[in-house]
Design a protein around this nucleic acid. Sequence first.
DNA 1: CTGAAAGCGCTTACAG
DNA 2: CTGAAAGCGCTTACAG
Lengths: 343, 343
Amino acid sequence: MTMSKPEQRRKAPTIHDVAREAGVSRGTVSRVLNGGHYVSPSAREAVDSAIRRTGYVVNRHARSLITGRSDSVGFLLTEPQERFFEDPNFNVLLRGCTQALAAHDIPLLLMIAGTEDERRRITRYITAGHVDGVLLVSSHSGDPLAARLREAGVPLVACGKPLGQASKVAYVAADDRDGARDMVRHLLSLGRRTVGMVTGPLDTPGGTERLAGYREVLAEAGMAADDRLVVSGDYSRASGEAGAAELLGRVPDMDALFVASDLMAQGAVAALQRAGRRVPEDIAVGGFDDSSAALGAHPELTTIRQPWDRISAEMVRVLLAQIGGEDPAAVILPTELVRRGSA
Amino acid sequence: MTMSKPEQRRKAPTIHDVAREAGVSRGTVSRVLNGGHYVSPSAREAVDSAIRRTGYVVNRHARSLITGRSDSVGFLLTEPQERFFEDPNFNVLLRGCTQALAAHDIPLLLMIAGTEDERRRITRYITAGHVDGVLLVSSHSGDPLAARLREAGVPLVACGKPLGQASKVAYVAADDRDGARDMVRHLLSLGRRTVGMVTGPLDTPGGTERLAGYREVLAEAGMAADDRLVVSGDYSRASGEAGAAELLGRVPDMDALFVASDLMAQGAVAALQRAGRRVPEDIAVGGFDDSSAALGAHPELTTIRQPWDRISAEMVRVLLAQIGGEDPAAVILPTELVRRGSA
DNA sequence: CTGAAAGCGCTTACAG
DNA sequence: CTGAAAGCGCTTACAG
């Protein structure tokens, strides 16, 4: 009559077992669990030891039921999924947020809102209080979800400045404009004089700000703005290829190209090489992100590093602060030029 | 005296409000919520309507407290993180699992166990019952986490066959060996005669099975096994580059190369080209995965498609079945040859 | 500093 | 089919 199955999940010890073991009341155990205020050193010690002996782990459901908090956070993706999941930045951000939350013992719930149906379901889930706050990844403006969640009073922090929003949404972003300036200055410092650009989507901050930085530096340098040198992409590799080919057709003597993401730049390099141009000899190419795509290009990309580790850490910090009652805040982080083979 | 802040989170309606509104008892509302058994049509209708009017959403914490289930699932990554987050397959798998679970209204908790500390914390969290089951992504054998969770009786399904485990672990995998056979046959059908291979890590099923398939086909074709033609990688792009360079040094007249992942194959193509070889004219290259890395290579990779959509859907199905009391099951899914420019 | 007690919002036998 | 009641495991005023 031995058990042949894997060990049954035994009934877990409760606060009651710990209290009995420690010779105190359940209230005292709870106080120890919640910061140890108003507990004598001896009681605290007895409880700590009883917790170790019993292997007690708090039942989060019971706790949440009474506190009204879930002690969990949602990571919400509202971009059309294909693009984001193709984007190497996404992984870094997701990992960073997961680990920053883990340090606070807070689980991350991954939510993907691609369709209107999913948006509805997720909105209901979130506003029902199943998460305490939301890390929002959605670079496009006019996202209805952000507005709905704001109205419902859900603590929220966006990755990148939400363009269309009332200014009250907290966000964390790299300094896109400054990064773009650094890259274009670098291209000019190489002696290049005809600098094209493939932008990101112009309804995103990365799209408009990086373009603005590009224009500022050209203006500083006394170069006339030339719209033929600018084309828009959508952050996909394919749009980088198409954009570079288009520009080459318009301005064959272009000798430098600033591409607003590494993945697009990877595509751009391939298109330029296919057209017989050598990178960087004939045309220097600068990317943006310093994502893994920068190493997948040949030559490897000179690019602008976005500090994703810090971005994710700050997103979590700002969100937890809001959950704790502080006001929304905006955080802008500096970028850095990374030189490799392409420019 | 108007409110200037975003709308306060009002107190959510409870089952009690619904009962009052519908003119029934709380027990009846609960029965409607849990499948509607033993409820008269009229009562059910009254409850449904009351739920709509009040905007009631069940409080999952209260439910979980009594049912003992969390109605959530963990997605656990135990690979050293760098490699996985570099792997484009990961995104597809994670998205697929999230969406398959969402269809059941079950949230996915993302867990990353890179260090021993994290492993301990996560084990405690899971065995405390905070998730009902675990989707495990860990290609290496001898992962202590899988064993610990099995012993604790936690429903579990692995992505890929767990090599070192007792046979009792459920898993879902593509048919690695068969896919490798298809690729090598394809290379031979092109008239190539000196076929090298860069394998995956040999403590993973993808590593050993794809190598076994390669050897089988060469043996079938009556070709002598030649260890100089085989080198091991670790699924990183860099290891693909190094592997291809190494093989070229050993066997300069190699005219085909099978690489056990697209990301490694991307690196291999770059290394071959750097060595002055044309792909596919001088040397045909076949990858494995049909991940986004296949499109990032130039030429684009001929590869073996792993059916990630089906893999993730099956992982979720098998896990939910286990949570529902069924025995662990293994599912093997067929692969498919995808022809592109590299072979 | 500590204990006894109320209560969070549900589900589920138990009677009827 | 339905209601009244117990109870899941916690936290938090309230007295002392």
